[in-house]
C-alpha cells in the first residue's frame, strides 16, 4: 500500500488570522493543484505566531475551539482536495466552568470529518543561552497519546518538543502507528542537526515512517519591553524510512516550501520482521528502574533517617 504525504513548510506568522489563513491556503493550493496527496501535514500552531518566548496575555485571545474556524477551513480543504489533513491550533476549551488551553493538532479525513485531535503532551520550559521558551504559561499538557486510523494506515502525532521523548513515540508504535508526523515550530539554526537526528532516531527505534514538519524563515515577536525577538525557524522539514534513513533531502530554512514523499506502508511490517526492536522490547525490565515518585523518595528518606527513642516531635522553636 502506497500513500503520498505532503509536508507544508509554512512561513513565519507575522500577520493576523485572516491573512495567515490566506498564506496557508496559497501554500496548500499551489502544492495540491500540481499533484494530489493522501495526507497533508502543517507545522505546529499554524494559525498563530509562536509567543512562548515572551509573556503576552493578548495571545490567549487567538485561541479557538476544536470545531472553530480553523477546523471549518480544514474540513473544506479536505473535501475539496479529497485528502486527509493534519492542521494545528491554539485550542481553547471549557471544562467545569474553567478555561483550558492546549497546543493541539486536528485530524480531518478526506470527507472533511474530524477523526480526532491530539493535544501536545510535553510542554517545554527551557532556558538555554541560545533559546528560551516557556510554553507552560500558555498551554496545559494533554494526557493521551492516541493513534488515528486513516483507512490505509494508522497515524500517530507528536508535536515539536514531544519528539525528544522516546517513550512517547514508543507508545504510538506499540499502538500500531505506521506513520508519526511531528508538526513543529522550532527555531535556532544551531539546533537543526539535532532535530534531524531525533526524527531519524524515532523512525528507526520504532520502525515507523517519521515526517517532521517545521516552519521556515524569520518571525518577529514583540517582547514585553517593546523590543523585537526574531525567531529564525530552521525549516528542515524531513521524512525518514522505518530504518531511520532519509527518504529525501530535508528542506532548507526558506519559508513556503513543501516536501512530498511516497510511503510504502508494507515497509513498516517488513522492517519490523527484519530487525524487530519491538519484539525484543522489555517493558517489565525497564519498569523496575522507573523513578519513584517525589513523595515516595521523601518518605523513604524520612523512614530511614535515624531518630533516637527519646526525640519528641515539637515542630516549634523554644
Amino acid at each position: 500500500m502506497h500513500i503520498s504525504v505532503l509536508a507544508l513548510q509554512s512561513g513565519p506568522c507575522n500577520t493576523g488570522y485572516e491573512q495567515r489563513m490566506e498564506e496557508l491556503s496559497r501554500d496548500l493550493d499551489s502544492a495540491l493543484q500540481q499533484q494530489s496527496a493522501d495526507l497533508v501535514v502543517f507545522p505546529e500552531l499554524m494559525t498563530v505566531p509562536y509567543k512562548s518566548v515572551t509573556v503576552d496575555d493578548t495571545y490567549f485571545a487567538s485561541a479557538e475551539s476544536s470545531d472553530g474556524p480553523t477546523y471549518q477551513w480544514l474540513a473544506e480543504k479536505a473535501k475539496f482536495y479529497q485528502t486527509a489533513l493534519v492542521g494545528t491550533i491554539f485550542e481553547k476549551t471549557v471544562s467545569r466552568e474553567q478555561l483550558y488551553f492546549y497546543n493541539t493538532a486536528l485530524i480531518v479525513n478526506k470527507n472533511g470529518e474530524k477523526v480526532g485531535q491530539y493535544r501536545k503532551t510535553h510542554i517545554p520550559k527551557i532556558s538555554l543561552p541560545t533559546m528560551r521558551t516557556d510554553e507552560t504559561y500558555y498551554f496545559q499538557a494533554g494526557s493521551e497519546l492516541p493513534v488515528f486510523d486513516l483507512g490505509a494506515f494508522r497515524l500517530g502525532i507528536l508535536i515539536c518538543y514531544d519528539r525528544s521523548f522516546p517513550e512517547a513515540a514508543r507508545a504510538l508504535a506499540l499502538q500500531g502507528a505506521d506513520v508519526i508526523v511531528i508538526p513543529s515550530a522550532s527555531s535556532g539554526l544551531d539546533r537543526s542537526e539535532m532535530w534531524l537526528q531525533e526524527c531519524a532516531a524515532r523512525a528507526r527505534e520504532n520502525h515507523v515512517y517519521v515526517i517532521g514538519v517545521n516552519r521556515g524563515g524569520i518571525e518577529s515577536i514583540l517582547d514585553t519591553d517593546g523590543s523585537e525577538i526574531n525567531l529564525h525557524y530552521y525549516g528542515k522539514t524531513c521524512a525518514f524510512h522505518p530504518l531511520g534513513t532519509p527518504l529525501t533531502q530535508a528542506l532548507d530554512d526558506q519559508p513556503h516550501q513543501s516536501l512530498r514523499v511516497e510511503l510504502d506502508i508494507s515497509e513498516v511490517q517488513k522492517t519490523r520482521q527484519q530487525i524487530g526492536f519491538l519484539q525484543t522490547y522489555r517493558p517489565d525490565l525497564y519498569e523496575q528502574y522507573a523513578p519513584a515518585s517525589e513523595a515516595e523518595l521523601h518518605r523513604q528518606r524520612v523512614r530511614q533517617s535515624p531518630v533516637p527513642r527519646e526525640t519528641e516531635p515539637s515542630g516549634f522553636v523554644r
Binding site: 513523595a295 531518630v307 516531635p313 515539637s314
Partner: peptide
Amino acid sequence: EIGLRLSSVDYLRAQRIRSIFQ
C-alpha cells in the same frame, strides 16, 4: 492528595527529624 495519603507515623517521624535538625 499527597498529604491525605501520608501516614500519621510518617508525619510524626518527620517532625521528630525536624526537632533533631532544629
